[in-house]
């Protein structure tokens, strides 16, 4: 397989997807129901990304305190929620994750 051709194709496809709506500019106005729907894109997509990674890191569901991915991400989320500061929340969760992984 031609790796370079593969990479160029991937690059063009990815750009086309990312530019799909942004290239439209003023030529298209969203109907109001769609604008309302897009309001929930960040929360929905991020939750859909995060939940399986936290609850089933190896593929099967691990609902347990011994699952460092679950405990660590709950810690990151809770600290970010209470403090509103992302970076300290992240660093604390990294420490907890490492501790659980290597000492638990």
């Amino acid at each position: 397989m031609n790796v370079w051709l593969a990479i160029i194709g991937m690059a063009l496809l990815t750009l086309a997807i990312r530019a799909s709506f942004l290239v439209l500019g003023r030529r298209w106005v969203f109907p109001s129901w769609l604008a309302r729907a897009l309001h929930y894109v960040p929360v929905a997509v991020l939750s859909a990304l995060v939940v399986p990674m936290a609850l089933a890191p190896g593929g099967s569901i691990a609902l347990s305190w011994q699952n460092p991915y679950l405990v660590g991400s709950v810690c990151a989320g809770a600290l970010a929620w209470y403090s509103g500061r992302t970076l300290p929340a992240l660093l604390a969760s990294f420490v907890l994750f490492a501790a659980l992984r290597y000492f638990a």
């Binding site: 991020l46 939750s47 660590g72 991400s73 990151a76 989320g77 970010a80 969760s93 990294f94």
Partner: peptide
Amino acid sequence: LATFTAIVAPQ
């Protein structure tokens, strides 16, 4: 995982 969780939780 931690980064995305920390972004989504406050929302």
